[in-house]
């Protein structure tokens, strides 16, 4: 689901109607829309840093296989040739591995930034990039709070590259490559609602093993990649400044002012024009 004016009004309408009809219906319609996204839960307590996800990702997307490996003190980054990386962190709970890739936000900043709808939040959940639409302005890269989209700077016909949650494999009914091949079951694929429940269950059943927070449940308005960690997330390289509201909401105020400006400014200008005109005419008559 992407935010646009029509959806906003739709939500307004639905909300208005349901407030009139009773609160139960409202809660149902709102949660249904959000949680039926597909999602991936990554449990870093189960990850052993074997890089199988990196290799299978490279294979699935015809990218070069990784030649380096996770090392404490080295931050490996995703790039135009690498859509996911595993990094090692030295934490209060010992060495912890963390897989990073696109977070597949519920309301992605990149999708709201894109002026051609090349970046698109699919109704299934993955955020995908469509080559035939993109004009390569890189506004998605400016807007993404996680710095995910990468650009092929050294190509005359460049692509924006990022994890697409193996959208094409999902269409064929297959699991994302990283999930399918993970030997430690650190990655689980399912609907976002199921996975949040599963993550909660793991935290409750084993409170000593987990830091009691699901990263991605609320961050950036909720994401389709959910994280569990044994330590606070800032210890494993996550940004703590990410806001909980969605990023496209930041431009809403501006965009909603546009129709008002388009009605008010011309009418005010015309009014001033008429006023000054009649003044001039009066002056001319007095002369």
């Amino acid at each position: 689901m992407s935010i646009n004016r029509r959806n906003f009004f739709k939500v307004l309408g639905v909300t208005g109607a349901t407030i009139a009809l009773g609160q139960e219906a409202q809660a149902k319609s709102a949660s249904e829309e959000v949680t039926e996204f597909k999602a991936i839960l990554y449990d870093s307590t189960r990850c052993v840093g074997c890089q199988t996800c990196e290799f299978s990702c490279a294979e699935a997307h015809n990218l070069p296989a990784p030649e380096d490996f996770p090392e404490v003190g080295v931050i490996r980054k995703t790039s135009e040739k690498r859509r996911t990386v595993v990094n090692a962190y030295d934490t209060s709970a010992g060495e912890v591995y963390v897989k990073r890739q696109c977070m597949h936000c519920n309301h992605p900043a990149c999708g709201a930034a894109c002026l051609t709808q090349a970046m698109q939040k699919t109704k299934e959940g993955p955020v995908i990039w469509r080559e035939d639409k993109c004009m390569g302005c890189r506004y998605c890269m400016i807007s993404c709070p996680f710095d995910v989209p990468k650009f092929e700077y050294n190509s005359p016909n460049p692509k924006i590259t990022k994890c697409n949650m193996c959208f094409e494999r999902q269409q064929e009914g297959k699991l994302p490559a990283c999930v399918e091949n993970c030997p430690g079951e650190a990655l689980v694929f399912g609907t976002r609602r199921e996975l949040i429940a599963e993550a909660r269950r793991r935290i409750v059943e084993n409170p000593d093993a987990y830091y009691p927070h699901i990263y991605g449940e609320n961050e950036a308005g909720g994401t389709s990649f959910l994280y569990l960690s044994p330590v606070p997330f800032e210890e494993i390289g996550f940004s703590t400044t990410i806001q909980n509201a969605s990023y496209p909401a930041l431009t809403k105020g501006f965009l909603y002012s546009v129709p008002a400006v388009f009605v008010l400014v011309p009418s005010v200008l015309l009014g001033i024009h008429k006023a000054t005109k009649s003044n001039l005419d009066k002056n001319n008559q007095h002369d």
């Binding site: 992407s2 709201a112 930034a113 002026l115 501006f254 965009l255």
Partner: peptide, 11 residues
Amino acid sequence: NNFGANSVLFL
């Protein structure tokens, strides 16, 4: 039909 109408850059 590629209007990213909710994009500031589109505007």
